[in-house]
Simulated scan of single mutants.
Amino acid sequence: MSCSIFILIFEPFEIENQTGEWYVDLIIFSLGIIFFLSILLIEFLVPKVIPKLFENWNFGKAILWYAWVILFVGAVMFTYKSYLGGFRDFTWMEYFSVLGRILIIGITVSFFTLGVISYLNRQRFSLISSNENYKIKAPNSKSIRLNLNNVMYIVSDDNYVDIHLNADGKREKIVFRSSLKNIESQIVTSLTPIYRCHRRHLINIKFFEIKKNTSRNVKIQLINYDDEIPVSKQYADLIVSLLQVRP
């Protein structure tokens, strides 16, 4: 929808109604609809059909995935455009031209849309991948799988970590032989809600609220529970800002 409105208003790449007929505007508007539907198809259908492809998501996988998304959406838009034009320009050159247009329009609209959403609700970006199952590995230990949406916090205990979970309102604790740094390297990314708040603690910010906030001391508390977690000075500004903007 955003792309349709963007194309109609700004008329990029000479995509404009030169006839003045209302149905031409409708055809131009349909380009944005097809663009949206093709992204909806690949972003929601593929993860459900091939969920293992999205496990242990990282930057490299994201680059490959969105390169594929651009190629797929480009193919759909190229086919639709060629159909409207009677397949007169059904060539590789035109396909790459469509890819370039999609990339520029998509990036422009996406940055604007994401900027608005981020301004209104920055916190939700960290929850994008919270429902993914992460396979956690450690030397001399059997790997485990964690759904980050269920992880409340993780605390280091010498050579082990205590992983506190909340699944469907039921608390559970897993003791896993690993360093906290090893766990952090596998689950803390810009897309997850897990943050380090202390040398011994990782937290899921959606489960916490600010208990005490002074210039000398910051403490957070597990919502609906008595668990209190200290916040080191070096992490205090970030953790407080994240909890303050949470809806």
Rank of each mutant, 00 (worst) to 15 (best):
N56E: 07
I105E: 07
T19N: 06
S30I: 07
Y23E: 10
R200T: 09
I102A: 12
Y83P: 02
Q244N: 13
I105W: 03
I28E: 02
C197E: 03
W22I: 10
V155E: 14
V151K: 00
L8E: 11
S129M: 06
N17F: 14
H164C: 11
I5Q: 03
L64S: 15
D226Y: 06
W22L: 15
R122K: 12
R200G: 08
G85Q: 02
F44Q: 12
Y195M: 10
Y83A: 11
G32R: 05
I28D: 05
F10L: 13
P230Q: 08
V109Q: 09
D237C: 07
I229G: 09
S38V: 02
G115E: 01
F36S: 15
A75I: 06
R124C: 09
N121T: 01
H198N: 06
N56K: 14
F176T: 01
V240I: 07
K173L: 11
R246V: 03
K233H: 14
F10P: 10
I144R: 05
I9G: 08
V161D: 05
K170S: 13
G100K: 10
A167P: 04
I39M: 10
V231L: 07
Q186Y: 01
D25G: 12
L120E: 07
V240D: 01
G115K: 01
F90P: 02
M93G: 12
G74Q: 06
P12F: 14
I34L: 14
Y95L: 08
F54L: 09
G60F: 04
